[in-house]
Design a protein around this nucleic acid. Sequence first.
DNA 1: AATTATTTGCCATTCCTTTTCAAAGGTTAA
DNA 2: TTAACCTTTGAAAAGGAATGGCAAATAATT
Lengths: 161, 161
Amino acid sequence: MQRRCGKKDNWWCGRFKGLGYKLTFSRQAVLDVLSNTDSHLSAEEIYQRVYKLAPKVGLSSVYRTLELLVEIGLVSKYDFGDRRSRYELGQGIQGDNHHHHLVCTGCGKVLNYTDFIDQELELLKKTEKALSKKYNFRITNHLIQFYGVCRRCSDGKTAGI
Amino acid sequence: MQRRCGKKDNWWCGRFKGLGYKLTFSRQAVLDVLSNTDSHLSAEEIYQRVYKLAPKVGLSSVYRTLELLVEIGLVSKYDFGDRRSRYELGQGIQGDNHHHHLVCTGCGKVLNYTDFIDQELELLKKTEKALSKKYNFRITNHLIQFYGVCRRCSDGKTAGI
DNA sequence: AATTATTTGCCATTCCTTTTCAAAGGTTAA
DNA sequence: TTAACCTTTGAAAAGGAATGGCAAATAATT
């Protein structure tokens, strides 16, 4: 089966080939799943969705693909405290959908928010600059998360009690 | 062996007993270790240090103690991306040693910094307020981390290459 | 000192993630 | 197209952090 770069000629094809990586069936599948969701999927969840499209793709390939995607900056990897990594497409600091996360410690739900992002960026830039100089760090990224309890959970609808 | 609350009568004794928890030998040991370091130890590392003082204390007790300490707010639990939790004494939002972290993605080293903390707090408060209202979240905590490459690592002294 | 509920240590287990390795696949050149 | 090359894959096993079960030990109280 000879495909130029995937039938749909997705925007990531060039990115892949440019770096010398092969755009394989498994990788396509993972990218397809990631680009068709707005939740923060775990590797296992991604695998399950991939499975429906392509049952032959193995879990390790999903892990390996995710690792690669994170490495080349197409995907961000997060830890929301539920003991498994979660992945999200896009999300570069300068990207158009830059956002931060609001995590409910009750049910684990994660919201994206973009409020005050501009002010944050301003402060962060200043901080980054100062820290770079003071501590000799070349800062490449940052993470901001808020934790709290969502309405549903604080209304006592949580499991337990 | 009858001890009032530990021979040293540490500040955390009251906190413990007030909440109905027993101040046991194992718990003392974990607290001793945590209060005598300024690095960000993992459970395993804490266990190793506890082991030197008290070889009979088991790893699970260390885990259980840490869980308890986090729960009652004496200890903060962090994820710096090296696939294990790390723990730090103190660190309440309002505490006197409130700080954030600067993580080197090369060697994993973690620095505490307090620069711009005040401005950060101001922005965070504003953000928290807005998010609380907008998303119906009762926000209890936040996390800010910077990632980058420390001097030593960027000088190519890292393992590999 | 006796009592009681909590906590511990040890061990096994769970769960997420990584590794191993032969087989399959994509890419390029002929 | 075919052949050759190196990459990538799937399946299964291994690795490693964290948790659970249970009898024995222990802190606090009587």
